[in-house]
């Protein structure tokens, strides 16, 4: 990175689309979309496994008995909203408003954390009260692998955004870190994309039967 890239930028001082203004930024952008293509395949294999095994519940509860829709609905709303707040963060980044970007990223992280704690609570209830564990049946293994992998992505996304915020707190926005913020927000949207299919395929279709 050059000194030019590290220069802190204020509104009206930089090119539009700061995330793609440097070669490094362009490469990050392309590389990240390539990675998202791979992630799609990863989650597809987990979805495929789940769909194939969801009725193999042995003596454990079936999908219809197990799932409740209230908690899932709240989790869905939280994650959808966090997607919008990260859009707001990127809106302010494009206008070089560093402070507002940080505020919106902070809200995104808080929403992500509340989603995660609800998911932990959900798993705890399944394991402690419903006897639905990773090893109880093929349905259990497939369910926890799919939803757990998504949860692990949420954890990683939270760590990623938080460390970006801490690392760049005093730096302000420049052409070196703008692509980093942009790519992290793409990752956060992708987590939401996967969740849309999880709540439809796992919970809603599980409830329908």
């Amino acid at each position: 990175m050059s000194a030019e890239e590290l220069k802190q930028l204020k509104p009206g001082q930089g090119p539009h689309e700061p995330e793609k203004a440097t070669l490094e930024g362009k490469n990050k952008f392309l590389g990240f979309w390539f990675f998202l293509g791979g992630e799609t395949v990863l989650f597809a294999s987990l979805f495929g496994t789940y769909l194939a095994l969801k009725n193999s519940n042995l003596d454990g509860p079936s999908t219809q008995e197990l799932f409740g829709l209230e908690l899932v609905f709240i989790m869905t709303m939280i994650l959808l909203t966090s997607s919008l707040t990260s859009v707001y963060a990127m809106y302010h980044m494009k206008n070089y408003d560093f402070k507002k970007m940080m505020i919106w990223l902070g809200i995104t992280v808080l929403l992500g954390l509340s989603f995660l704690s609800l998911e932990v609570y959900e798993f705890y209830e399944y394991v402690m009260h419903d006897g639905h564990t990773f090893t109880s049946s093929a349905f259990g293994s497939a369910f926890y692998t799919l939803v757990g992998t998504h949860g692990a992505h949420v954890i990683f996304g939270l760590c990623w955004i938080t460390s970006l915020m801490i690392r760049n707190a005093k730096r302000g926005l420049n052409l070196y870190n703008a692509p980093k913020f942009y790519v992290a927000s793409l990752y956060w949207h992708f987590i939401d994309v996967v969740w849309v299919f999880i709540f439809t395929v796992v919970y809603l279709m599980g409830k329908v039967g």
Partner: peptide, 12 residues
């Protein structure tokens, strides 16, 4: 990615 994903799910 979506193309491969589709085939994967269909196969399983």
């Amino acid at each position: 990615g979506i193309f491969v994903a589709f085939i994967t799910i269909l196969a399983m």
